[in-house]
Amino acid sequence: MKSNWHSWQTEIYAVFQKEWRSESRSLSGIMTTALLCLVSVVIVNSITWTTSINPMIASGMYWMILVFSASISLPRTFLQEEDSRTADFWRLMARPEAVYWGKALFNIAQMLLATTLMSIAFLVIVKVHVENVGLFIAMAFAGAVSIASTVTLAGAIASPASSRYALSTAISAPLLIFLINLGVTGTATSLGEFLKSGENGAIGMIAYAFATCSIGPVVYSKIWKG
């Protein structure tokens, strides 16, 4: 039992480490996500610099930036395997669940970093005041995990297609739209908007993060050999 758990751990860690090593050579994934987030925050600021935006609009923009930056930059963990023709190597060497978890954990780590940087930039540049810091952090954390796990699965589904980059964005965005909805409710409450069920947004987001993290490996294990 213990050795089985250890072998899973080793496989997942190996995939994670491989992702980290290939990322650390160029940092292109993290840089792309960070740049997309920063450019979006600057655009929001340049549009709204003469007016103060209300918490609802501010949280809507915050989630739009997060979701679209993630749906463009995160699926590459699976897509680059097809580009570099190493996907078949994984199919021979590792269990699908381990591959999925390794890549999902890497995406979650990347997304948490991007969310932290983007939140700081957003709060400072757009000048938004946070009323409930705990709820804001909970929403950002749960949102990052939900977005990363959903986009990882979308990337895995789109990876065998020829137009995989456009397709992964096209199929992950619809799956994430309703997360914007949940996110806006919770984040707007944390920014001072009075909503009846602001905290429910955080609960919904955490529940969705659990659901996608559970469904993702199962679906991936069924689709990965085509």
């Binding site: 297609a161 397709l167 069924k222």
Partner: peptide
């Protein structure tokens, strides 16, 4: 997006497998 995904695959097996995966993922939202 399910139909967009289906049109993206020329191989019938991959089309079927990946669109089935998407249908499961889309059910929660």
């Amino acid at each position: 997006a399910y139909f967009v995904l289906r049109t993206a695959f020329t191989d019938t097996g991959k089309r079927a497998t990946n669109s089935a995966g998407y249908a499961i993922a889309a059910f929660l939202p």
